[in-house]
Each structure stands twice: as C-alpha cells, then as structure tokens.
C-alpha cells in the first residue's frame, strides 16, 4: 500500500521577463495505491503527473505532505533508510532507448542489479543468470535472443520489455509507468499493456499508470482508480469506469471529448465538448484553476477555488461548484 497525503511541490521557473517565479506543480495531492491495484493519473503535459511519478520513485523531493509506504512514513526516515523503500518503486518511462545503457548488452544490464540482490539475500552467484532468464521470460522475451544483444539491436517494444525486466530484478512493490507505451508501435502497445496487467495479477505488483490517454489507462486498470489532475490539483477521482462513464468535472469531460471517435464503429457522445488548449501562458491563480478554459464558467468560479467533494457515497469525488454528468464518451454503433 502506497499512500500520499497533501503532497505539495513547486519549482522555480526559469527566465521570464519579470525574473524567476514559482510554479506550483502539485497542490496538496492525496492518493492511495493498494497492493496489486492499478491507479491512473491523467492530465495534459505540465499538469504535474510526471512530477508525482518521480516523487514516488524517489527521484524528486516534495515540499510538504506525507508519503507512506506499507505503513512507513518516508518523510520521517533518514535518506539511507528511505532508499531501499524507493528502490521497490520502479519507474518505467516513455523512451526505452534512453532508459537503457547503449554500451551494455541486456545481460550486462540485468547482471548488476541482480548481483546486488544476490548479495543482499545471500543467494549463490549462479542465481543471477537463472533469475535473468526468469525475468526475461516473465516479460515475454526469448532470453537466448536478447541476452547478448545491445539496445539498438532490439525493437522499441522489446526495449521497453527489457526496461520492465530490469525493474523486476528488485522484486518491486509498484511500477510507475509514465507514458510507457506512447513511443511504441501501435500493434505492439497492447502487448506491453497486457504485460502490465499480468504483472498485477500474477506478481501482485501495483501499477501507477501516468498518461494522457484515458483508454490505455482503462485497459490496464478498469477495476482501479482514476485521478484527473489539472495544474497540480486533483479535480476528479473515482473508480476508473465510473469516472469515464459519468464524468462530472468539465475538465475531465474535455479530456474525454478529445479522444478520437472511430467513425463507422462509434458515434460521438451526445454531450461531446469542443475543448480548447491554452494558447497563452497567463493563467490566473485565484478561483478555480480551470475557470479560464471552462465552457461552463460562472461568477463564483473566478472568486473561489473549489476543493474535492464527494458525489454520492461511492468514493467518486470532484472539485467543481457546478458538477453535472455529461455523456461525452463515444458509444458503439449496433
């Protein structure tokens, strides 16, 4: 179980005419990832979802809030004690090519973390190569083929599987997959997503799925939870399928409306919106963060910032003064 509460993070932005200013990347984010569960964070680039993934993987610090892993409050631990906990949360990012050392074969890539693991757990050295074979088979690769090869000799899909295999060498508790399939060929994407699903069900690995593509998030964890994040604030959260079918926040509705409709197979949702992207960098800080882009903005939205509040008692939450279910998702024909 990984729990975050009130996580805040700000960065100093570079340059600008008026000099550096602070950009709030995360604004009091609360979330929980149950063991073997799937949690998805969706939002546009710059919304803070990548920062959150990096914080979870221990690659970034946070300014305020608590991060609790299996009952241990990481903020209270000394860095030395914190490290082994973070090691069990592995980050899989977008570009598998830059994640692998180009001068190392797959065998070399897997050997280092496995040797360390063998020493830590008093296993014989022979375990290293048998375990390497095992993790490669687990991710659907032929060990005989990939072990002696360099990253450039493998396809994008195979490389991403190698990255996942390397993550498995530490027996991770959770994988943070940040746009993990966006650079993979379309016909191979589902294979990687399938693998993540399998790791969930067979190894009990939790998956934190970070993406702008709601459909892939749903594929990995339709039974999981979805968090929609806008400029660092969670603006809607609930069971993935519930939020997709009954979104109440206009931003969630904009994101869902932007998904291409497969004309011929689907009809656009009756309430589909025409979202617009922000074409100027001036964004108001007061009131609702989404007010300047919201098609349904009202006076109150510019004056006051809505906080997360529940819809019914199903755990579905939103941060909107005027929540309304809209049918924006395409429906199948026939």
């Amino acid at each position: 179980m990984i729990e975050g509460s009130g996580i805040e993070k700000s960065f100093r932005s570079r340059g600008g005419v008026l000099g550096a200013r602070r950009v709030q990347a995360l604004r009091g984010v609360d979330f929980a990832i149950p063991k073997g569960g799937a949690v998805s964070f969706i939002g546009e680039s710059g919304c803070g979802k990548t920062t959150l993934g990096r914080i979870l993987a221990g690659l970034e610090t946070f300014d305020a809030g608590r991060l609790v892993v299996d009952g241990e409050d990481l903020s209270a631990l000394k860095p030395k004690r914190r490290e082994p906990v973070f090691r069990r949360i592995q980050l899989i990012h977008q570009d598998p090519y830059s994640a692998l050392n180009p001068t190392a074969t797959v065998e070399m890539t897997l050997r280092d973390p496995l040797s360390l693991r063998a020493r830590q757990t008093d296993r014989p050295h022979s375990w290293v190569s048998s375990r390497a074979t095992e993790v490669l088979e687990m991710v659907g690769l032929d060990p005989g083929y990939v072990l002696p090869r360099y990253p450039h000799q493998l396809s994008g899909g195979m490389r991403q599987r190698v990255v996942i295999a390397r993550a498995l060498t530490v027996d991770p508790e959770a994988l943070v997959a940040d746009e993990a399939v966006s650079m993979i060929d379309v016909s191979l994407r589902l294979g990687i997503l399938d693998l993540l699903r399998r790791l969930r069900s067979e190894l009990g690995v939790s998956i934190l799925f970070i993406t702008h593509d709601v459909a892939t998030a749903r594929y990995v964890g339709a039974d999981g939870e979805l968090y929609v994040i806008y400029r660092g604030q969670i603006i809607e959260h609930g069971a993935t399928d519930k939020v997709i079918a009954n979104p109440v926040h206009p931003y969630t509705q904009c994101l869902l409306s932007a998904i291409p409709v497969m004309h011929g197979l689907e009809e656009p949702g009756v309430d589909r919106l025409e979202p617009t992207e922000p074409l100027s960098e001036l964004q108001a800080e007061g009131g609702c963060l989404f007010a300047s882009r919201c098609p349904f903005v009202a006076e109150r939205c510019r004056a006051e910032r809505p906080q997360l509040m529940p819809v019914g008692d199903s755990g579905h939450e939103h941060a909107c003064f005027f929540p309304e279910v809209r049918r924006v998702v395409a429906t199948p024909i026939g």
Binding site: V186, Y219, I259, M262, A330
Partner: peptide, 12 residues
Amino acid sequence: LIRAIPRLHGDP
C-alpha cells in the same frame, strides 16, 4: 490493428 486499440466502452 483496429482490434488492438483499447476503447472507452465495452469489455477492456
């Protein structure tokens, strides 16, 4: 190719 694209409705 069409079958390999996850959708927002139906059984994933």
